[in-house]
């Protein structure tokens, strides 16, 4: 797994990433962890510690809800599902992301073409 990928940049979107996983179906901690690795094409690992912290935060804010599975063999899984407000939040975050992505791309890679803006002219 590439570790040189800028994890800070991604970590800022932890909540949206989790919401994206959950809007495609209920899931539990370890499965979400694996799904994120798979979604990234094995390039990014969201640590479990970060995941659990995010679950707690998202649940407190009402974007996700949890329930216990009924497995008995060696303990129960805690499943998460996205709420209505969570879906709403996800859409909003996705919009914000599209906007930021375009602007950032222009800001970071864009060349200056307008002559008037050059200093000294």
């Amino acid at each position: 797994m590439a570790s040189n990928i800028s994890t800070d940049l991604i970590r800022g979107h932890t909540d949206t990433i989790i919401l994206n996983v959950l809007q495609q179906g209920d899931s539990y901690g370890y499965q979400i962890y694996k799904t994120i690795i798979a979604l990234s094409g094995n390039q990014y690992e969201l640590k479990e510690a970060t995941l659990y912290t995010a679950f707690r935060r998202l649940e407190k804010e009402g974007y996700i809800a949890s329930y216990w599975g009924d497995e008995t063999q060696g303990g129960r899984r805690k499943y998460y599902r996205i709420t209505e407000t969570g879906v709403e939040r996800y859409r909003k975050n996705k919009q914000d992301w599209h906007f930021a992505k375009n602007v950032l791309n222009q800001l970071i890679e864009g060349g200056i073409q307008n002559e008037e803006n050059k200093p000294g002219s």
């Binding site: 901690g29 370890y30 962890y33 479990e48 659990y52 060696g74 303990g75 899984r77 805690k78």
Partner: peptide, 14 residues
């Protein structure tokens, strides 16, 4: 209690 329960089962599956 719930966090421990959750951590344990996920750790075990890993």
């Amino acid at each position: 209690y719930e966090l421990k329960e959750e951590l344990s089962i996920n750790l075990k599956e890993k």
